[in-house]
Design a protein around this nucleic acid. Sequence first.
DNA 1: TATTGTTATACTCTATAACTATA
DNA 2: TATAGTTATAGAGTATAACAATA
Lengths: 147, 147
Amino acid sequence: MVKTPRSQASMASSVNELTTAVGQLLRRLRSETGTDELNLSQLGVLGRLDQQGPMTTADLARAESMKPQSMGTILASLEQEGLVERNPHPSDGRQVLFAMTGKGADVRRKRGNAKREWLLAALMQLEPDEQRTLLDAIPLIKRLSES
Amino acid sequence: MVKTPRSQASMASSVNELTTAVGQLLRRLRSETGTDELNLSQLGVLGRLDQQGPMTTADLARAESMKPQSMGTILASLEQEGLVERNPHPSDGRQVLFAMTGKGADVRRKRGNAKREWLLAALMQLEPDEQRTLLDAIPLIKRLSES
DNA sequence: TATTGTTATACTCTATAACTATA
DNA sequence: TATAGTTATAGAGTATAACAATA
């Protein structure tokens, strides 16, 4: 297959498909709601704290491309359910370090998280080369969001 | 080993990244708002009517993975701005065929659509092989939503 | 009786603005 | 004066439920 860089005109027609596809996936994920009552943002924060350790509100907001006030709302809801806890920053009294609790870790590990399980099952149904394409596209989608 | 399908464990770690990436892109797109005051759903409907011709509320709702009532709201807003018009179905008095108007076509063609232009510019900044990966991933994302 | 669409209402998610506290 | 976070409010986007009209 010859490598032919896409023209701007051909890319333009893909813009609608991409936004539609992304919107569809998000609506689908949102509708998958079982025993877990965590939404996508809450799951995202929990996953990030699990991977990266304690973080501040501002850092989490930046990582998720969200306003700090919006992240504050998410963290408050997670704290109320005992999934994250707040710890003082060692040197800066203004900052608050949010950490995942044991209960939060349980929620992430346990079965019953309908959204994650649905998406995982859907991913597993793709052919191996399709999986590779989709996984390779993830960092590219992130790059788009940051440009 | 020729083909190395990803293990379920390795895929599980990608689930969070995918949802986060998709959420980020959507928030970014939503925030790009210039002279056009059309949101992503409105643009999606307009694009679909442009490509596929007149459609009913139910068909549009199915195409965008949305409830008919939600689609009705979107269509009402587009109609109020004169971007779509309603025509009776030739044989079924219950159905309404929505078609894009000339003004709707203008809006789609003209410059000033901040969301589409931003995304197009971002796509053009990717390397050709990255573009190909991302475009190849679009139908896969749709498949996920439908499974 | 089933289907298409409308109307009314409520919920989820995120943003903006104004404020407090610490640096 | 600048930054981190909180509180209050508003908005966009979508869903659910109840209804009307046509099939």
